[in-house]
Write a protein that binds this DNA or RNA. Structure first.
Lengths: 213, 213
DNA sequence: GTCTAATGAGTTGTAATTAC
DNA sequence: GTAATTACAACTCATTAGAC
């Protein structure tokens, strides 16, 4: 085992599971595992939003990478209540702000609770279903997403994405694609994220992402 | 692995099909910085149309070139659910706005569904070649979109137990962050040190986390 | 007419908020 | 800290309409 070392602050268990990624149960509530499929790396456009947004907008959801999720999940299974230092370690390790980690753990605990709770009750995991639940029968047949996305990509490690410009541009600018921003400003914020990425990757120093307000 | 350098994010399949079509040389980062020139001469007329149509009108249909379709199809067969980066790569590669690609994939999935639905799973619909599987270890399960109208999903048996998710992949150096990081940096730097090997293992390049609030 | 890109309504999981 | 809630992001599915 190449990575025999583990971090001092994190339980070794974690490293193991993370390393082999054995059965970490991400997706607690099974209905559609596929959703978190595409975890997106970085490119937070979130930055600005996150900092300032109390007025009006909430910060945009962080998209964890698979690796981040795996790690988080691994740690979580080992220690649902990490200590401050552990949060810090994770923060550094995953390159995520501390708060995000903390929140993730909160949610994870909640998730877990919810699950076991329903387990007893024999209800669905629906978080949202507390009031007017019951619809599960009526809607039946949800679409089934695929279980596991996963990309062919993998190794090709040498690439270029090199960091650095990661920008502080920020904000989900509905501005999209470099070549064309087509049409409307419907609520599609994903393009911008992508854009940033592509730019970096290709080193296209094209237009900057500006935010429209 | 000659090809993989070019577009790390796309399955090799693509490279093949693309290659035979016309050798695209989009050398991204390392070699020639800043040229996005690619080999794509034409920029769609669609762009213009699309650009203009946003006042209430629906955007005009994109007319994909043959090459674009081939590439899309190739990627689709390999990964019906590309992830963000892959969309980006495609976007850059094909000179199409991200949204268009996303939509194409949605439609492609729909199409495929329709096909299998009409006839049984094993019928020839033309596509359906997904014998891909070149990825890493992940377990046996590949994409499992539903083959039958009836899905096990809602079954009571499926509870929170579960699913293993994936493994992982390598996503291109996560660069990221720079979001707010609360708290002291002292700890994190030390953690950082301690975690160095892990980082390597995970291929997480540690971005600098700065800026605290 | 056919084919299919684009749209929109509806579903789901979950990150982020709020309340406690 | 938990518990409940909200808002988003990614999807499906059904439909509409644009080019042939």
């Amino acid at each position: 085992i190449p990575f025999s070392m583990d971090l001092p602050l994190l339980p070794s268990v974690v490293m193991q599971s993370v390393a082999q990624n054995q059965s970490l149960s991400l997706s607690p509530c099974p209905l559609s595992p596929g959703l978190l499929a595409h975890t997106f790396p970085q490119t937070q456009t979130t930055d600005l939003l996150r900092g300032e947004t109390h007025r009006g907008r909430r910060s945009s959801r962080t998209r964890f990478t698979e690796r981040q999720l795996e790690t988080l999940q691994g740690v979580f299974e080992a220690t649902p209540y990490p200590r401050e230092e552990e949060y810090d370690s994770l923060s550094a390790l995953l390159s995520l702000p501390n708060r995000i980690i903390v929140v993730w753990f909160q949610n994870a605990r909640q998730r877990k609770n919810g699950c076991s709770k329903i387990d007893d009750v024999d209800n669905s995991c629906g978080d949202e279903a507390q009031g007017e639940s019951q619809n599960e029968n009526s809607m039946d047949l949800t679409y089934e997403y695929y279980t596991n996305p996963d990309s062919p990509v993998l190794d090709s490690s040498s690439h270029c994405i090199e960091s650095e410009h990661l920008t502080d541009n920020g904000e989900p600018t509905p501005v999209m694609s470099k070549q064309e921003n087509t049409q409307e400003d419907t609520t599609y914020s994903q393009a911008n994220k992508s854009l940033a990425h592509v730019q970096i990757k290709n080193e296209i120093s094209d237009a900057e992402i500006q935010r429209k307000e």
